[in-house]
């Protein structure tokens, strides 16, 4: 048991070392960056303030959150509706449509990028938030995940609800959706994280600095002022914080959601 503890602690340490280096470097004065000592001789907390002064970091932050929240909301909402249709409603051709739908999950996003860009030009959405949000908001993965979850809810509930005179809409809102909560939380985390970190599409789409999301902002920071390692590391550290919050708050539900949903698929 003691050995296990030590092993866990050693592994955890190796995995977090880069992270620790990042945080420590972000607190160093410029002159000490790149020195062998990991600890700063003076702790420069002002580096964090400086990041906001040299680049519009607050704007990047806001934009990333804004886009990620919208995408997450839309994806969770539309996916639950679709999953409800695929799992609890009975209609001709349902399973065939679902298979086809699922098949697109393995398509490389790359294939869609160039035509999607042409569509955005035609819709006049290049360099706009809707242009970022819309293509990311509809995914087969979300539907798949929640459908798996809804399938595990007993069918008898539906019959009871219908007997009570509920419509399918009421069944969805008042019975199925609340029971699928762990699935929804899992999807929320997945979607939020991947869209908060999205790089490829925003890189192609965005032009105005005022619309930059964090990854694009960080890249811009790296290419324009990459030598200020301490500020860069401070910016990276700050960009990670929302993810930690989301994970720490929701991890129990997250793991339960995965256990109940995806795995039994």
């Amino acid at each position: 048991m003691g050995v296990l503890h030590l092993a866990l602690a050693i592994v955890a340490m190796t995995l977090t070392l880069p992270f620790v280096w990042m945080v420590l470097t972000s607190l160093k004065p410029l002159a000490e960056v790149g020195l062998e000592s990991w600890l700063p001789t003076q702790w420069h907390w002002s580096n964090y303030k400086e990041v906001f002064e040299v680049i519009p970091f607050a704007t990047f932050y806001h934009n990333s959150l804004f886009v990620a929240c919208w995408v997450t909301f839309l994806q969770v909402f539309t996916s639950s509706l679709a999953a409800f249709s695929f799992s609890r409603l009975d209609w001709p051709g349902r399973d065939r449509v679902f298979l086809l739908y699922l098949g697109t999950m393995m398509l490389p996003g790359l294939v869609m990028m160039i035509p999607n860009y042409q569509i955005m030009i035609k819709l006049n959405l290049v360099d706009s938030f809707p242009g970022l949000i819309l293509p990311a908001a509809f995914s087969a993965f979300g539907t798949f995940l929640i459908r798996q979850f809804m399938l595990s809810i007993p069918k008898s509930l539906d019959e009871a609800a219908y007997l009570d005179g509920a419509s399918s809409w009421q069944l969805f809102w008042h019975v199925i959706l609340p029971l699928s909560r762990p699935g929804i939380v899992t999807l929320t985390i997945f979607t939020f994280m991947s869209n908060y970190n999205a790089f490829f599409w925003p890189l192609v789409m965005l032009k105005s600095e005022s619309k930059y999301t964090l990854p694009i902002g960080l890249l811009f920071f790296d290419s324009s002022r990459g030598q200020s390692t301490h500020l860069l590391m401070a910016a990276v550290t700050m960009s990670v914080i929302p993810m930690i919050i989301v994970f720490v708050l929701l991890q129990k539900q997250f793991i339960r959601g995965i256990a109940a949903g995806a795995v039994k698929g």
């Binding site: 860009y117 955005m120 290049v126 360099d127 032009k207 930059y212 290419s223 324009s224």
Partner: peptide, 15 residues
Amino acid sequence: SNADLSKKIIQGVSG
């Protein structure tokens, strides 16, 4: 922020 060649091309062709 858009001095990168591929960005100039992408933005150029999309108006």
